[in-house]
Write a protein that binds this DNA or RNA. Structure first.
Length: 110
DNA sequence: ATCTTGACCTCTA
DNA sequence: CTAGAGGCCAAGA
């Protein structure tokens, strides 16, 4: 097993995303910054790309604008919106969530 | 080590 | 709003 394995950046991202509670949204920058990599926001997104199909709530991860940048990677944008709405997330635009109301950060996790 | 790619962020025009 | 450019970082070939 793993006594002191080296969790790649990807696994750290997945771990954080997996901790995002329903009705909350996290941003790439916040996750990257929490991992100690401030400019690694793109790498975070890349990790999510691999996370598709891994059971990770990638739809809860949005950019600084609260916009679902990866809507083209999930499925249909429509499904995305409904899914987030189903969790209690409000939208301020067609593809924009109310970050001010549902902003979640790794530090918010227990 | 080098080059490319990637679901970003920010600025400027 | 769109378009172009720069910066930051990590993984893969």
């Amino acid at each position: 097993m793993e006594s002191s394995s080296d969790p790649s950046f990807f696994e750290r991202v997945w771990a954080v995303v997996a901790q995002i509670p329903p009705g909350r949204v996290a941003t790439y920058g916040d996750i990257a910054e929490h991992l100690g990599r401030r400019g690694a926001a793109r790498t975070v997104g890349w990790a999510l790309n691999e996370a598709v199909g891994s059971g990770l709530p990638c739809h809860r991860v949005v950019n600084r604008n609260g916009e679902l940048t990866g809507r083209r990677h999930f499925e249909t944008p429509h499904v995305m919106k409904e899914r987030l709405r189903s969790e209690g997330v409000e939208f301020v635009d067609e593809h924009r969530v109310a970050l001010d109301k549902h902003r979640w950060t790794p530090s918010d996790a227990a």
